[in-house]
């Protein structure tokens, strides 16, 4: 496997509402690797994903993040997305009056424009999203409806997986991608996500439970507690966690 680093996080500290949530966090993800971050509620897992995406209100107080060798902190939200960062959100927001098709076409074209590429052919684009939605068991009707409005939990996650498939990011962050999914939907979403895997694409899977990791198999598992990684290992660490819980790690670091 290519050992070129894609994402390098060094001594990252970040706060929300003047409260420090991420404390001296270190992590390097190389091209083609899948990393899982597991941790209890309130450990700062979602904060980490928002910090990486550059959301307002998530303030980096010290440390560095490099993405493809560039300083990620110099980029705004859309520049990070255009560089190849993608977040499957835990709670995708509802956007009344905007269909998935319309919105994704804007996204594809804004990304292409930033890379000096011409606008995508509408027919190619439609064909592409129809194929992907078939793989995800998403009704064509869902592509025309207002984005995420009165979608079930499963439909929302499948819509996120659809966007990931269209935008083909080099680093996908999956924030609790299994929440709200029944077992069949979980398999469908995981299958689609796995189909996007290749030696250049990396993933950061954030989850409470080991369940998702049965379907998206990680190369590395990190335990995240009190704002930092407290233990790293391979996929067996996730299985061990499932049996023993997080309490020993929280106590050690309290």
């Amino acid at each position: 496997m290519d050992k070129t680093p894609l994402l390098e996080i060094e001594d990252l500290c970040a706060q929300v509402d003047n409260k420090e949530i991420i404390k001296n966090f270190n992590l390097t993800i190389n091209k083609g690797e899948i990393h899982a971050i597991m941790g209890p509620n309130g450990a700062g897992k979602s904060t980490l994903s928002y910090v990486l995406c550059g959301k307002d209100g998530y303030e980096v107080t010290s440390g560095n993040i490099r993405f493809k060798g560039q300083n990620l902190l110099d980029m705004n939200v859309e520049q990070r997305a255009r560089a190849g960062l993608f977040l499957i959100m835990q709670h995708p927001v509802e956007i009344p009056g905007v269909s998935a098709t319309t919105f994704l076409k804007h996204a594809v074209n804004d990304i292409r424009k930033a890379n000096n590429l011409p606008e995508i052919e509408t027919m190619d684009f439609i064909k592409d999203i129809k194929n992907i939605s078939r793989n995800l068991n998403l009704d064509n009707d869902m592509l025309k409806r207002s984005l995420n409005v009165s979608f079930s939990g499963g439909e929302k996650k499948r819509m996120e997986a659809l966007q990931m498939s269209v935008l083909k990011p080099c680093l996908s962050i999956l924030d609790e991608a299994d929440s709200g999914l029944d077992i069949d939907a979980l398999k469908t979403v995981a299958k689609q996500i796995n189909s996007l895997k290749d030696e250049h694409k990396s993933m950061l899977v954030i989850t409470h439970f080991q369940r998702l990791l049965n379907y998206i198999e990680p190369d590395f598992v990190h335990i995240f507690a009190n704002g930092r990684i407290v233990k790293s290992g391979d996929k067996n660490l996730a299985i061990e966690l499932e049996q023993n819980g997080y309490s020993q790690y929280i106590k050690e670091n309290a």
Partner: peptide, 22 residues
């Protein structure tokens, strides 16, 4: 909503326009 659209690569100005149009 703005964050969601921008996190998919849409420029701030376009994101605003999409939401106003909707």
């Amino acid at each position: 909503q703005m964050f969601y659209l921008r996190s998919r690569g849409i420029s701030e100005q376009n994101a605003k326009q999409i939401l106003i149009t909707a």
